[in-house]
Each structure stands twice: as C-alpha cells, then as structure tokens.
C-alpha cells in the first residue's frame, strides 16, 4: 500500500512537472506569436488604409492589441491581432472586388 502511494505521488509530481514545462513553452511561444501577429495586423491595417477601404472596426483592435502586448497580456494581444488581421484581409478583398464591382451599382 505504501509503495503504491509513493508511486502515485511520483507519477503525480511527474505529470505536474510536465504540465508546468508545457505551460512555460506555450507562454513563450505566445509572446513571440503575439508580437508577430500585432506587427502583421498593423501592416495589413495600413494596407487597407492605402487601398481606401479602412474599416472603423480595425484600428481599435490594433491599438488594443499593441497595448496588451506592452502589458504582457499575450493571449489577449494575439487574439485581438488575429481579429484585426482577419478584418484587414476582408477589407483588402473588398477593395480589390470594388475596383470593378462599383459599376454594378449604377442606376439601370
């Protein structure tokens, strides 16, 4: 019984150690990802402005993502940056599509 208890305790400690190391790795990966994602979000947002199709919803996401990155809130920064990236890509698709599509709106 005592051996079993000791073994269980050892297994539990091992599991905790493994989880702790995963958590540490995940945290460092997220920090790098958040920084890259925030930079990509900023660049794509600027591209949408240059294309003349900036959405009002993108800037607040980019600004808050940068703030969260500075505050070391990496998960939140990454999440906001990903939303900004997604919206900026949609805005750029809209800009490309509307180069021709606006003609379909003319009165017929």
């Amino acid at each position: 019984m005592k051996v079993l208890f000791n073994n269980s305790r050892a297994v539990l400690i091992c599991i905790l150690l493994i989880l702790a190391s995963f958590s540490s790795i995940a945290k460092s990966v997220t920090q790098a990802q958040a920084k890259a994602a925030t930079e990509e979000a900023h660049n794509l947002w600027q591209q949408s402005i240059a294309a003349g199709h900036e959405w009002s919803t993108i800037k607040p996401l980019v600004v808050q993502s940068k703030k969260n990155l500075t505050a070391k809130l990496y998960f939140s920064a990454l999440s906001l940056a990903e939303q900004a990236i997604s919206q900026s890509k949609q805005a750029l698709i809209q800009a490309e599509h509307e180069k021709i599509n606006w003609l379909n709106n003319l009165p017929k």
Partner: peptide, 21 residues
C-alpha cells in the same frame, strides 16, 4: 461618382445601396 457607388465598411454598403437602390 466612384465613391458613391463603391461598397465599403464592415457592413459592405455603398451610398447607392441605401439612397438609390
């Protein structure tokens, strides 16, 4: 003219979508 007929924004509307069509 192009601005009036071009869809924009997250809701994808042009001026013409509302005030013409």
């Amino acid at each position: 003219k192009q601005y009036f007929y071009t869809k924009r924004g997250q809701l994808n509307f042009s001026c013409a979508n509302c005030h013409l069509q």
